[in-house]
Amino acid sequence: MLTWVVILSTVLVGIAMILCLYRLFIGPDITDRILALDTLYINSIALIILLGLYHGSALYFEGALLMAMLGFVSTSALAKYLLRGDLIE
């Protein structure tokens, strides 16, 4: 049962990522695109956790942690660049 639930959850998260991509393409302003990228990396963390659960392997957590840290850094860097016009003043 759990195998099918993992596959169904992967499909749901994939649909969520497609919706994020839609917002990334049509976003009226660049802040919408940054928000779509932020949601996209959170969804991809869930996808990689589901992959680790599917394969029964504990090796994917380091990748997920790395993606979480890099996603936060990139989101805050883009927002800071929009806000101040420069990253390191």
Partner: peptide, 25 residues
């Protein structure tokens, strides 16, 4: 585990749907 996975992926789908649907930033 199956219930938590369904709840989690459902909420992620709702969040992304709201990202598409809502009118204002």
């Amino acid at each position: 585990v199956a219930l938590l996975l369904l709840i989690g992926s459902g909420f992620m789908l709702i969040g992304s749907w709201g990202l598409v649907k809502l009118p204002d930033f």
